[in-house]
Structure formats: structure tokens, C-alpha cells
Computed example of a mutant assay.
Amino acid sequence: MPLGTLDRSPPPFFKQGPSALSKLMFFSALSLFLMVADTRFRITQPVRAALATALYPVQWLALQPVRAVRGGGDYFTTLNQAKLASDEAGKKLALQSLRAGQVEQLLQENNRLRKLLGLREQLNTPVMAAEVLYDAADPYTRKVIIDKGMAQGVDLGSPVLDESGVLGQVTRVHPLVSEVTLLVDRDLAIPVLNVRTGARSVAFGDPTVSGSGLELRFMGSNSDVQQGDLLTTSGVDGVYPAGLPVARISRIERRAESAFAKIYCTPQALVTGARHVMVVKPGTGQIPPRPEPDAPEAAPKKKGAAK
């Protein structure tokens, strides 16, 4: 057979296309581009919203046995436990009634003082009830999913509370559900106010993976803090309403080699087992816009300037 008639191309089995290194570099660059674009421009948000809406019926069906077990456990609660819970609720109601009377009197005095000083009215904070469906699947974050979303008017960044204090903040909103990052998450920070001293600071989530507390950072070693001090929201960020309970200081470590003290706090809210929560509208939309700076005045012309 003449040599010119032979097919010199390799068999299809040996045709591998680009090398493995070229494929690795291409897909690495593509994944990096998609991550940056998603962070800056939220290009995958519609895809997430569509998937969350499509999977909501499946999630609802999967949660029905859990709700049935919860309902059965609540139904078969012993009489002694029900009596203890009723007594505790009665004591708490009596304390709340006393505080409510004091709050009404203080509110009237506050309104009179504001009118006397010409201050604007305090911001209204509409709230919405919601229920925690389940915890997020990511083991390295502290997040929960609630049963309210865009359809119910939940806004991104809304504070979330339970009956004891601040629980977290809405960090992702889908059409029917929302994702809430708990305040003990290592990526969440909240401005706080020490009720006893009036000092402002910032509380950060516990950086450890299994942590369930808060850390009060950037406080000097000689700062006036004591174990048991109550920390509330300061309201300076315009997101959290002022005066909401956040945590209590549980442990203080003062070290001579460090200029800052290590202050650990225990959250007031039930971060590990909350079921019913309140979603508060963020105050950013109610704050008046910042006034525009005045235009700089034109410099006066010097005498004797060339015409």
C-alpha cells in the first residue's frame, strides 16, 4: 500500500484536546471571575431565588414530620411542666406589667421634652412575626431559615428578635423564605451600649466554629466594665432600634502585655433553639437623607489683575 494513502492522524482514543493544566487554569479563572462577579454584582441572586421558590414545596413536605413530632411533644407535656411554665409566665407578666406602667410614664415625659426642645419624633419600627423552619446546612456559619420572604415584605438587613433580645439579622431574602445570620456568627458585628456606664462599643460573634457567645472588642484594659453588665443596641448604625437587649458580660480577661481587654458576653436571645421570632423593619429607610454640602464660594478677584 502506498504511504500517501495511510491516515497519519492518531486514533480518536488518543485525541485529548487541551492539556489538563490548561483546563485547570481556565476553570480556576472562570470560578474566580464568577465569585467576584457574584460578590460585587449579585449575578446569581435570581438563580438562588428561583431555586428556593422551586424547592419550597419539597422543603414544606420534608418539614411536616418534624412539625408533627413537635406538636405531639407539646400535646403530651406533663401537667407539672405545664404548671411550672404557667407560673413562670405569670411572674414574667407581672414584671412586664410593672415595667409597662413605668414605660408609659417615661414615654409621656420623653414626648414632652422632645416637643419642648424641638426634636423630631422617634422612628417607628414596624414588626412582623415569623417562625424558624430549620438551621442552615453550612457547618461553619450560624444561620437559620425563617418562613417569611419577599412576598411578605421582608427587607434585606432587617433585625430579628425573640422574646429575650436580638437574635440576628436578615442577610439573604428569597421570595418565600429568608436567611437570618445569628449574632453569634463570626462575620456579624453589632453596635452596643453598656447600660450601666453608657459607653459604646462593638460586639462581634465568637470566632470559634462551635462558639455560641459574643466578644466585646477594642475596649481598653482599664475600661469600666464589670461582669454582669447589660449590653443593648446603641442605635448609632441606623439598622437596630436603640435599647434592645443584646448580651451580658460573662468573663473579663485583663492582660498586662495587651492594651485591650478580652471581654466575653452571653447573648440574651435563645440562639440555639428559637422557634418564633419578630422581624423588625430596618431604620435605614426612615432616616432623612444627609444634607448636601454647600457649594464653595468663588474666590474674589485680585485687584490689578490683567484684563
Rank of each mutant, 00 (worst) to 15 (best):
D162S: 01
T39P: 00
D138C: 02
V173I: 08
Y240R: 02
D294W: 02
G165D: 04
G198E: 00
R248I: 09
V184R: 00
G198I: 04
P65E: 01
L183F: 03
C265I: 02
L167Q: 00
T272N: 00
L244V: 15
L216N: 01
E104P: 01
E257H: 09
T77C: 05
Q286I: 09
R112D: 12
R112W: 10
S250H: 06
V166F: 00
V69P: 00
D138S: 04
M35G: 10
G17T: 08
L32K: 07
S28W: 14
S210N: 15
G238I: 10
R8M: 14
P159T: 06
G168T: 01
R217E: 06
K303A: 10
T181M: 05
L6V: 14
Y240P: 01
M1W: 05
F33M: 14
V127H: 05
P139N: 01
D135N: 07
D229M: 04
L156I: 11
E104C: 09
K301M: 06
I263H: 08
Q268T: 15
A62F: 04
G304T: 05
K15D: 13
L182H: 00
L55R: 09
A50Q: 08
R254A: 01
N80C: 13
L113S: 04
M150S: 15
P291D: 08
L84C: 10
E104I: 14
R248H: 11
G273F: 00
V47L: 15
V103I: 12
P12F: 07
F14N: 03
G205F: 01
F14E: 08
L95C: 04
D206G: 01
A259Y: 10
